[in-house]
Amino acid sequence: MTMHSGYGLLIDSELPLPDLAPAPAAPARPDVVVRLGAVAPPSADAVLLPRGLWLDGERIGIDVPEVGRYACAGGSRITVAAAPGATPEALRLFLLGSALGCLLAQRGLLVLHGNAFVVDGGCAIVLGHSGAGKSTLAAEMHRRGQLVLSDDVVPVDATAHALPGWPRIKLWQDALDRLGRDSAGLARVDGRFDKFHVPLDRSGSVAPVPVRWIYVLDRHHGPLRVVPVTGAAAFASLHEHTYRNEILVGDLRRTHLARGADLLRTARLARLDRPTGVDSVAASADAILADIAATPTPIPIPQAPSGRRAIREEQQHAASRPTRKVGA
């Protein structure tokens, strides 16, 4: 067993996690345990969801073909049943992604699909679908000296603080080429793909950081621009870019709405429209940093809708827009 730390948790894992930093010496009792073993299939009363997800009482399950079955229980335990021939890299990929994301939601956190970095003591979160360029943009911010707080999975607590994740970014080979970074010596995320773990030079422990700015990456036929998003559209953006939003049913849905309302009271949400077909990583970083500089904190945020009103407004907005899924 090896103890690791991340997202403010101590994780005792039976599955080796060599890409993560070990926890400090003499750690306290773990918050989360990860064990290898049999996982019971979903019961007859389970709620079956898209993309291999299911809800069964206190369990959230993930079935990944040719990799294995994961069960998250009570926000404190993940059991991994490996499929025959599954590689350790593939098991780690879904453990630290989908399974941990579901477990963080069980712990009452708003889990966003994006990257987070720190500017002047505040946190900026960049949201987007798979392939939108979130990690490449985070790497560009890191190159400019900004502290990258989290990659791909960004948990936000009830006080609207983003929790620090693992000290690395996952980048495809073409992104490394664009940034002038050699992949030699970098560990692959999965041996089947040209995607690599890029370590971050983060020293010491990092405390949670208050979220002040949220940017949603999008494409359009026009110039690069930053467009503020408010009201029901802001709630809809948070839902659309929640990590594994398929599980937002029942109590998880209500908690998600409450955390979203808390966040939108203190953070400004905007859409970053980028010109279609143009490599705009540097220009996007310029636009975000300029927008942050022009939006001092604390910033006045209109009261966000809550409870049934929030659900009603989000449903009305969702009916008027195309549905898009969050990627793996």
Rank of each mutant, 00 (worst) to 15 (best):
H142E: 13
R259G: 03
R321Y: 12
H4R: 05
F196H: 02
A26C: 10
A40P: 03
R309H: 11
C123L: 08
M1V: 15
A23I: 15
R308I: 11
P223N: 11
G68P: 01
C102I: 03
P84L: 06
S76T: 15
A99P: 00
A232Q: 04
R168P: 07
H220W: 14
P210F: 09
V47K: 06
L110M: 08
A318R: 14
D19G: 10
L109D: 06
I60A: 02
A46S: 13
T2M: 09
T297R: 11
A207F: 15
L200I: 14
A26M: 15
R202V: 15
I288H: 00
D174V: 13
L112A: 10
G8R: 05
A310L: 05
R321W: 09
H129M: 10
V111N: 01
W54C: 06
V153I: 14
P305M: 08
A282K: 06
P88N: 06
L264Q: 12
V67L: 02
R144S: 08
L264E: 04
A293R: 14
C72I: 08
L147H: 06
D262N: 15
L17I: 13
G260H: 02
S320M: 12
F193H: 12
I78L: 04
G85R: 02
G327Y: 09
V189P: 00
G57M: 04
L248P: 05
M3D: 12
G108E: 08
A73F: 02
C72V: 12
L49T: 07
D251N: 07
A290V: 13
L53R: 01
R188K: 11
N245W: 04
A81G: 03
P298E: 07
R268P: 02
T297E: 11
A25Q: 14
A86H: 01
V216G: 02
A46D: 04
T79H: 00
S205P: 08
V148M: 08
A162E: 10
A304Q: 05
P24V: 15
A99T: 04
L248S: 05
S5Q: 13
R202W: 13
V211D: 09
L17Y: 12
A285N: 04
A236Y: 04
L248F: 07
W213M: 05
P164S: 02
T230S: 09
T87R: 06
R212V: 10
A282I: 12
E246M: 12
G74Q: 04
D63E: 09
R253C: 12
G75W: 03
P18M: 10
P275A: 05
L163V: 11
Y70L: 02
P298K: 01
V198N: 00
T242D: 03
A21Y: 05
V326Y: 01
I301E: 03
H256G: 01
H241K: 06
E313T: 11
D190K: 06
T297Q: 13
M1L: 14
A319R: 07
L257M: 10
V211G: 04
P228S: 07
D45I: 08
L91D: 01
L289G: 03
I60Q: 08
R107S: 08
I78F: 00
A44D: 14
G61N: 01
R254W: 11
L272G: 01
P302Y: 09
A124E: 05
S130V: 15
S135F: 14
D177N: 09
L200M: 15
H113L: 08
V249L: 06
L171R: 03
A38L: 01
G74E: 06
A290M: 13
A290G: 14
H129C: 07
E58A: 12
I125G: 04
D63Y: 00
D182A: 15
